[in-house]
Amino acid sequence: MIFESKKYKGLLFILPSLIGFGILYVIPFFGGIKYSVSKSSFNSTFVAFNNYTDVFKNNAFKIALKNTCFFMIISIPVLIVISFVIALMIYELKAPKIVKLSIMLPIAVPSGTVVGFFKKVFGFNGFNLIDSEYAMLVVILIFIWKNTGYNLIIYLAGLSQMDKEVIEASMIDGANYFQRLQYIIIPLFTPINVFVAIVTIINSFKIFKDIYMLQGSYPNPKIYMLQHYINNKFNDLQYEKLTSSAYIFSLMIFVVVFLLFILDKKHAKRVGGN
């Protein structure tokens, strides 16, 4: 590789970001771990993994974890596919501006309006789904409605940055659209897909706000999420339980993200990066 002589140059480039990020994110990240192995929020006696085992035994946590995983496993892939397909359609059909704006707008809407509307449609006076077994459906719907635009923006930028020569070349080769999609466009999109996946995971935490405004701290057990547990633990001053549950959850997410990262690296090798 030709860049090797300048091995420390890169550090200079990331330095401003690294300093700020280190102080504001990395230190708190490890600071949180300290709480998770303390006896209580206001008693820093070391108790090793007691809080972790306590949290694992807790019924509410189990329900929350189950619901959150269920929600994420269903809604994240669905959202990614939907937003990718819509982005492709908009790009290929050169859709009018109004279409793009309509799909993007929900991300700009404050939680209160969403709640106002969905409460009327799915709440007590409407279909009354939010109190039923199928409450999760409403949550997934709100999530997809709210976040398609977010991913769409990223995908549209990705599409416009695409190397069109490669695509044109494949057209000459006689590949049909779906072959092109499968062998050229989607592989080219790996880094962006990885980013979209990360962002969607982050945004999936934010659905808590909408559920909270719909149903408060203790919603229908079908949509009781980990964020509810975390939020309530914060209000109850049990920071040790909060942090340990969050780290358990983050570990699970991290496994997924690590797989994404490996995918990303593989892609880089294929396009000849480092």
Binding site: N58, N59, A60, F61, I63, Y218, P219, N220, P221, Y224, Y229, N232, K233, D236
Partner: peptide, 9 residues
Amino acid sequence: NKYNIWLNE
């Protein structure tokens, strides 16, 4: 069920 979650949190 809801209250039991609340109580056991």
